[in-house]
């Protein structure tokens, strides 16, 4: 069994990201989309939590949402991978189910 978790909220506005991190087991996949992409950036107050999560979970960020917000790959926390919508679809299919932290 494996789960893809999506987070679409800025970690500075809602607790969806922290809830996702604390409710996802090791080896889960986490994809940040929409305002969730702000969670992927270095030097933020939650970067430490993401840094630890990267060690045991696969963390992805949706490229089109990142770019739309004036962010780029150089600003990402190490270990986070960028995917496009095709990659989003692949993640959905590669895991047994999806938990959307709305």
């Amino acid at each position: 069994m494996s789960t893809l978790h999506t987070v679409n909220k800025s970690p500075f506005e809602k607790n969806s990201m922290s809830s996702c991190l604390s409710h996802s087991v090791a080896d889960s996949a986490i994809l940040m989309i929409e305002d969730g992409v702000y969670g992927a950036i270095k030097n933020t107050s939650i970067a430490g939590d993401i840094d630890s999560a990267v060690k045991e979970k696969s963390i992805y960020v949706l490229g089109p949402d990142l770019k739309a917000r004036g962010l780029n790959e150089d600003q990402l926390i190490d270990g986070i991978s960028v995917v496009d919508y095709a990659g989003f679809v692949e993640l959905v299919c590669a895991n047994d189910k999806v938990q959307n932290w709305l």
Partner: peptide, 8 residues
């Protein structure tokens, strides 16, 4: 983790 479908 044990579920087949998660409704949100």
């Amino acid at each position: 983790e044990q579920q087949d479908v998660l409704f949100n």
